[in-house]
Design a protein around this nucleic acid. Structure first.
Lengths: 167, 167
DNA sequence: CATACTAAGTTGCATATCGAAACCTAGATA
DNA sequence: TATCTAGGTTTCGATATGCAACTTAGTATG
């Protein structure tokens, strides 16, 4: 099998997703929106993000269809806007939780993790795990095998020969 | 329960992890290293990253203990270096796969995903899933509940009162 | 009615980070 | 002695980010 480096780096789903949400703030904005911090000033105050940057990020996320900007009006107040996760946006939750789980395990102090996630249905703690279609559960340091998929593309200018690919 | 925004944003495990690997390149560097692209020039060529930035990222990742820089020498060649994931680094694989899965589902073209991941043991495709301790499997758009953990911290200057927290 | 207040941005400018390309270094080879 | 190559480092211009002031439109206040 050809080495991974012969495949185009930008075609990768990781690269594509990072192009959308892979800057210093976007994932934190999504975290806040997911946690019910929905209004502009509230997000800005909580994150400490510059307002112009937040403005750009929210616009970008809305355009990408990850959040929805909706108007609402409380009685006796003027119309305001709030941001909520869209369907595809809610599918990002596993990414957020994967980050959280790694941080809990590797960066938390002796007091323990700063937050706990529970299943909204039953209240039990949640874990991110990798499972294969045969039902095997892979541990915390999984050994996986990567192979080119139908949408793979060669890197322009890559030499066509190569040796083994790992996992 | 207090709203999420009354808790310190930087204490969060997501924020802490992002501070380590949350820039435009680091996750791609880790992806390449995980996939056997181990040498400086090879990574630089594959990613199209500026060499000075790659140099900084590799140094940072090594200092953080996520990758290991080891010298090796092929017979009749001079000593060289290569980078490999460390133990904690391998624990980042679920993050990479969560990104990949989201991109496969939301950004792939009609041809299909650019790559497939398989269990190194049995060869079956792998999925990232959320499961709770009672054995429930949460779907693609999970509903979860967040609550403060033992390591939580109030945001300096946050008002002590607040209403409901979502999930 | 005039004034002030607030949420939700926008604008202008200073600073920090990034990228491209040239340069550097040390060991192997000719 | 000169050359090649992997693995960087330096320099400098281009981008991105942060900060603070300004804008806008409804709402409340005197």
């Amino acid at each position: 099998m050809r080495p991974y480096s012969t495949y185009d780096s930008d075609t990768c789903s990781i690269a594509r997703t990072l192009a959308l949400i892979g800057d210093r703030w976007t994932l934190l904005v999504l975290r806040d929106v997911a946690n019910g911090v929905r209004r502009f000033d509230e997000i800005a105050g909580h994150l400490g993000i510059a307002r112009n940057i937040l403005s750009r990020r929210l616009a970008g996320l809305a355009q990408a269809g990850l959040i929805e900007r909706t108007a609402y009006r409380e009685p006796g107040a003027r119309e305001r806007h709030e941001y909520r996760l869209s369907g595809p946006g809610r599918e990002l939750v596993p990414i957020l939780l994967a980050f959280m789980q790694w941080g809990d395990r590797n960066l938390a102090g002796p007091e323990g993790p700063p937050a706990l996630v529970r299943h909204a249905g039953c209240g039990a703690p949640i874990r991110v795990s990798l499972t294969c279609d045969q039902g095997h559960e892979l541990g915390e340091r999984p050994r996986v095998w990567l192979e080119p998929g139908p949408g793979s593309r060669m890197r322009p200018g890559a030499t066509p020969e190569g040796h083994a690919l790992i996992g």
